[in-house]
Write a protein that binds this DNA or RNA. Structure first.
Length: 583
RNA sequence: GAGCGCGUAGCUCAGCCGGUAGAGCAUUUGACUUUUAAUCAAAGGGUCCUGGGUUCGAGUCCCAGCGCGCUCACCA
């Protein structure tokens, strides 16, 4: 299944999947500079609890990183740092925290100086950092964490900070034209941290003394004058200069950013050049939109949270969503989940059959760092082939016949199909869905198909939250009511655990004497034994399941359980579903 | 105003390095289970936004235009 690095590299050089296109920019950079290491960066703002965009940025950056390693056959070391801007001043109290008043008393201070409202860490900043790391760790991302506070205070930025002070005018010449006159008059790239209050000050600078490495400013309240070194964590930088300084000080080679930051990247890049640095490679991905085409924002709470996605589908499907068309504005809301799941599965399914050229363009390759798991599929007719883990692995791409001769027809179960099944079965019980699947492939089981089992569990949750509320039930009229009551009674009289056939026969027998459902044109119908029309079954679906169509009803009841079915009938007749529908 | 993106079947979209327009859903028809879900088979349906250009050949590349959407221009 796998190829050695040197065998893979030629394919990688011809690959045009976007992570490779990005990685090629880095290869060119490395060839230009002769550097032996490449540094990737992703950054996190101070408001910073991890969210779906955080996942996307790290996942995408990781894909580029892996593509780069493939291109260079692992000869160039790579690192990814997750940089937290925890020295930024806290601008407002977040809504979603306890002890707001405790935090409010520290507005304006660096996050690492604000007490932790959750009482778990030394500071709010450290709390957020811990959350970020836990989040990234949960997905198994490989990264090194970096704290702005720590980096500033350790002196790691000092040399670059001093350089920026020396190039103060150049930086201002870049920044000022981008600002409105009003803001420009007071703008300074250095934000001194007030030696007494600890607040990150946004004040005009009275003096720039690069020989002594400090800036002079005045407290706007008291008028007191202070001189503050730009080094050692006594000054924070404004955002765009900060970004530039960090790139230069750390030697960042790659950082991607959303399209809303295009102008910022441009300005920061200019500043980086003014510091004799080379801005990183990178690209601008599109923002996600909500169902109405609006930008997703944490404050507005529109769109989809990562927790919500993961309630309905796997992390891999989310990674697929992030891989797919990063430059196009995509809507991110519940409806896209089933499609993302199914497309991911389709790519996973195709992977073993593909040649390497195609494999390197297959999202599954990028999502799984070059080693996608084998697809699961169940087989029709009698024996389901178990999961072909070994089988798929041992069959090389080029010669992979779709299936050995005589093997039953294989079928990948899609999320859409499971949702359909859940809808018609009206069930949140995974074992009911498994029951339906076993009718198709008797050998199938959760043990043999763990991923399918997981998907079924996701599907029933999705069904419960999104599909079931859309069901349209109708009320039974008098004839229908009597028929259903009769059916319920007849079901009760059946022996325990009836077969699907028995129930199906019962259904016909119950309907046969009812004039509305008689059909003399039916196959095998006779005057003394009328056939049963479709209307009977249609009524069952509409009244009991809220669907226009449904499963073979005898099979359904046999799987669903006679008692459950009788409860279903009772509830329907009691108008329970109607009441729910009008809510 | 600037930047980014989009415009292909009724709907949602795919179309990689130019080579006879595709899928899913929807619609219609058929197969199968005592007629009904899933599944399978088939059919209908397109001025690829418009106009130029390059080319033997353009949905695809280039230019211009039209329409739509988003982002930025205060802070990160």
């Amino acid at each position: 299944m796998s190829k050695t690095a040197s065998e893979l590299a030629p394919f990688a050089r011809n690959a045009n999947a976007w992570p490779f296109e990005e990685a090629k920019k880095l290869v060119a950079r490395v060839e230009r500079t002769g550097q032996k290491q490449v540094l990737f960066e992703t950054g996190y703002g101070p408001s910073g609890l991890p969210h779906i965009g955080t996942f996307g940025e790290v996942a995408r950056t990781t894909m580029v990183r892996h593509a780069f390693e493939t291109l260079t056959e692992g000869r160039i070391a790579t690192r990814l740092i997750a940089f937290s801007d925890d020295l930024d001043g806290l601008r407002k109290v977040p809504d979603n925290i306890p002890n707001k008043e405790l935090v409010a008393a520290h507005l304006g201070k660096p996050l690492t100086k604000v007490p932790d409202p959750f009482g778990e860490y030394n500071s709010f900043g450290e709390h957020n950092n811990a959350r970020l790391r836990a989040f990234l760790d949960a997905f198994g991302f490989q990264y090194e964490f970096a704290s702005a506070t720590h980096y500033y205070q350790s002196g790691r930025f000092d040399a670059t900070l001093l350089k920026m002070l020396a190039r103060y005018d150049a930086v201002q010449n870049i920044m000022l034209p981008s600002l409105r006159a009003e803001r420009a008059s007071s703008y300074a790239p250095f934000l001194p941290i007030h030696p007494r209050s600890g607040i990150v000050m946004q004040v005009p600078l009275e003096e720039i003394d690069s020989s002594r490495g400090l800036v002079a400013w005045r407290d706007p309240d008291t008028g007191e004058r202070f001189e503050t070194p730009v080094t050692g964590g006594h000054c924070k930088l404004q955002w765009k200069p900060d970004w530039a300084m960090r790139w230069c000080a750390l030697g960042v080679d790659y950082e991607m950013a959303g399209k809303d930051l295009i102008d910022s990247v441009k300005l920061s890049s200019e500043i980086a050049r003014a510091l004799d640095g080379t801005p990183p490679e990178g690209f601008n991905y599109e923002l996600f939109l909500d169902e109405n085409g609006q930008k997703i924002s944490k404050s507005r709470g529109n769109g989809l949270t990562i927790q919500e996605w993961l309630r309905y589908a796997s992390p891999e499907s989310l990674a697929f969503f992030m891989y797919w068309k990063p430059r196009e504005a995509k809507k991110l809301y519940f409806d896209v989940i089933p499609k993302a799941v199914d497309e991911y599965l389709a790519f996973l399914d195709a992977y073993p059959r593909q040649e390497w050229k195609l494999r390197l363009g297959n999202p599954a390759w990028h999502i799984h760092a070059g080693d996608p798991p084998p697809p699961e599929f169940i087989a029709h007719e009698g024996e389901a082939k178990g999961n072909p883990a070994g089988e798929a692995k041992s069959s090389p791409a080029g010669e992979a016949k779709s299936s050995p001769a005589g093997e039953a027809k294989r079928m990948a179960i899609s999320f859409a199909m499971l949702l359909n099944l859940a809808a018609v079965a009206n069930s949140e019980d995974p074992s009911v869905l498994w029951g339906f699947l076993r009718r198709y492939a008797p050998g199938a089981s959760p043990e043999k198909f763990p991923r399918l089992d997981r998907m079924i569990r996701y599907a029933v949750v999705y069904f419960r939250d999104f599909v079931r509320p859309k069901k349209v039930y109708r009320a039974a009229d008098e004839v229908e009511r009597q028929a259903l009551e009769k059916l319920s009674g007849a079901l009760a009289a059946l022996p325990a655990n009836p077969s699907a056939e028995e129930v199906q026969t019962l259904l016909y027998d119950v309907a046969r004497p009812i004039p509305r459902y008689q059909n003399f044109a039916a196959k095998g119908a006779a005057p003394e034994k009328p056939g049963v029309s479709n209307d009977w079954f249609s009524m069952l679906y509409q009244v009991l399941l809220g669907e226009a169509r449904g499963p073979r009803f005898g099979s359904f009841i046999a799987l669903y359980g006679v008692d459950n079915a009788r409860t279903l009938i009772a509830d329907a007749l009691a108008g329970k579903f109607l009441a729910d529908a009008t809510k």
